[in-house]
Design a protein around this nucleic acid. Structure first.
Lengths: 201, 201
DNA sequence: GCGCTAATTGACCGGCCGGCCAGTTAGCGC
DNA sequence: GCGCTAACTGGCCGGCCGGTCAATTAGCGC
């Protein structure tokens, strides 16, 4: 900003802008964020934001791309290290997904904002992920280790949506009477879910 | 707007503003809505909005209050007409809730926006609702008709969150490979859920 | 009918929004 | 070192945002 330390590092500048932008967009959503505020947060001039990203809209896209890229690679890694299909593995996948969301609350909110915008530019990536997961479920069904009378995609959807909503709407239902902690809820959800997808002997 | 039909009907005016505001807020969220646009949609001058509601913020509160009031009374009515506690009734309650959300997509989005804002000014009403539902579950558990090893509030939460997320994030997962229709998903969710909450004989 | 209240209008405002541009300068290739 | 590219600055802009206000008038109580 002022005359001190005139070192230039465009990579760092881009990173600083992206980081500050992600924080603000996650917090307030696209239209509530002001570029002036963002510039202050990133310790950068407003013009610099335009120089590196073109417009507020393009910056928003860049932020989403980066976050969903992270989400996608993390999930893909989890899927790939999954071993022999069986019910226990499904359980631990749900746990892993739940904990991933808990550790990445920003991603959850970013998802939520984009859902509300009707934006589905991340759905190619997500479809891949869900497709792979559903295929894994199908294999497990074929081995008789999961109920075969349920659409595999729906099995994935049920646990993904429950975990997502738990964190998206946390501010809302955390005050519900009798509601337990993250872990207590996950425990109870797994009781229902696992019992529901496992075949009766 | 112009000189024709100089009839005044403040109630109708308020209603027109509220209706247009709800539509826009539902669509775009609070900060993306412009009062000028809203005035045009409601066929009303901008000043009239301020006259009747004070400020954009207060109008937003009024819109939320009205919508949540509607939601609350509808749900309370459903709860009260519920009869003898048993598992079949839980099933039909889930179905009713799911169909209510499908018929009221605006409410779902309004909920979503307020969740993201961290606003929980509707939580007293909601807590009542959840409390009543959980109590009903507890009664059913005591009769041995539902598994007793699960927190009743969590049972409510699981189905509420799944239904909510289904509609909140519809634009997102409707393109997932293998995903079925509303009814097909509900069917599969109920298979999992009912099996999960029913005691093994 | 008369007068008072409040619904309604349209002109207007200060502020700030996203974006632009002319000018400066750091840093890299040569 | 030299020059060129692009990173970076600060001032600026048009537009429109939410909000105000004075003036007008419909409608209701009496």
């Amino acid at each position: 900003m002022n005359q001190r330390t005139q070192i230039r590092d465009p990579e760092l500048t881009r990173a600083r802008i992206l980081e500050a932008a992600e924080a603000l967009f996650v917090e307030q959503g696209f239209s509530a964020v002001k570029l002036s505020e963002l510039a202050r947060a990133a310790e950068v001039t407003k013009s610099l934001i335009h120089h590196h990203f073109g417009s507020k809209e393009q910056l928003w896209e860049a932020v989403k791309d980066r976050a969903f890229e992270r989400y996608f690679t993390a999930q893909m890694a989890m899927l790939e290290e999954a071993g022999e299909p069986d019910a226990a593995l499904l359980r631990s996948s749900v746990e892993a997904y739940f904990h991933f969301l808990r550790e990445n609350p920003g991603v959850v909110r970013l998802f939520a904002w984009t859902h509300l915008e009707g934006d589905n530019h991340c759905s190619e990536l997500d479809s891949q992920l869900v497709g792979a997961g559903a295929e894994w479920v199908r294999q497990t069904q074929l081995r008789g280790l999961l109920r075969a009378d349920i659409n595999p995609t729906h099995i994935i959807a049920v646990f993904v949506m429950t975990c997502t909503q738990w964190f998206e709407a946390k501010c809302h239902h955390q005050h519900w009477p009798g509601m337990g902690s993250d872990e207590a809820f996950l425990e109870d959800f797994l009781k229902i879910f696992m019992e529901g997808v496992t075949p009766r002997e």
